[in-house]
Simulated assay, not measured.
Amino acid sequence: MSPSITRRILAGAALAAGVARPARAQSYPTRPVRLIVPFAPGGGVDAVGRILSEPLGALLGQPVVVENRAGAGGAIGVDAVAKSPPDGYAMTLVSPGNMTAGPVVRPTPYDPLTLSYISMVTRSPLLLVCRNSLAAQNLAEFVALIKRQPDAIRFASGGVGTGTHLAGELMNLRLGTNMVHVPYRGTGPALTDLIAGNVDIFFSDSSAWPMVQQGQLRLLAVSSATPWAASPQTPSVGAEVPNFDISNWYGIVSAPDTPEPIRNRLAADIAKVLARPEIQEMLGRLGFDAAPMPPVPFAAFVRNELETWRAVVQAANIRAD
Score class of each variant (00 low, 15 high):
residue 80 A to M: 13
residue 124 S to R: 15
residue 113 L to C: 01
residue 116 S to W: 07
residue 122 T to W: 14
residue 88 G to T: 12
residue 55 P to A: 11
residue 39 F to N: 09
residue 56 L to T: 03
residue 54 E to N: 03
residue 49 G to W: 10
residue 85 P to F: 08
residue 116 S to M: 13
residue 125 P to R: 01
residue 91 M to Y: 13
residue 142 F to E: 15
residue 84 S to M: 06
residue 69 R to I: 09
residue 56 L to Q: 03
residue 35 L to I: 04
residue 47 A to Q: 09
residue 106 R to I: 12
residue 103 P to W: 03
residue 59 L to F: 15
residue 77 G to F: 06
residue 127 L to C: 00
residue 112 P to S: 05
residue 50 R to G: 03
residue 85 P to L: 14
residue 17 A to G: 10
residue 54 E to T: 12
residue 115 L to A: 12
residue 113 L to R: 15
residue 84 S to D: 14
residue 37 V to W: 10
residue 49 G to V: 11
residue 101 A to M: 08
residue 35 L to G: 09
residue 46 D to I: 00
residue 70 A to R: 06
residue 75 A to R: 09
residue 54 E to Y: 06
residue 119 S to M: 01
residue 111 D to Y: 03
residue 103 P to I: 10
residue 37 V to T: 06
residue 73 G to N: 09
residue 103 P to M: 02
residue 126 L to D: 06
residue 61 G to D: 02
residue 99 M to F: 08
residue 137 Q to G: 15
residue 21 R to S: 04
residue 80 A to F: 15
residue 93 L to N: 01
residue 38 P to G: 04
residue 46 D to P: 01
residue 136 A to E: 10
residue 112 P to I: 05
residue 135 A to G: 07
residue 53 S to T: 14
residue 98 N to R: 01
residue 21 R to W: 15
residue 101 A to C: 09
residue 32 P to E: 13
residue 120 M to R: 07
residue 116 S to F: 08
residue 93 L to S: 04
residue 85 P to W: 10
residue 136 A to T: 02
residue 47 A to G: 00
residue 127 L to V: 00
residue 105 V to M: 12
residue 99 M to P: 04
residue 140 A to M: 14
residue 136 A to P: 09
residue 84 S to A: 10
residue 39 F to P: 13
residue 132 N to I: 13
residue 56 L to I: 11
residue 99 M to A: 06
residue 72 A to I: 11
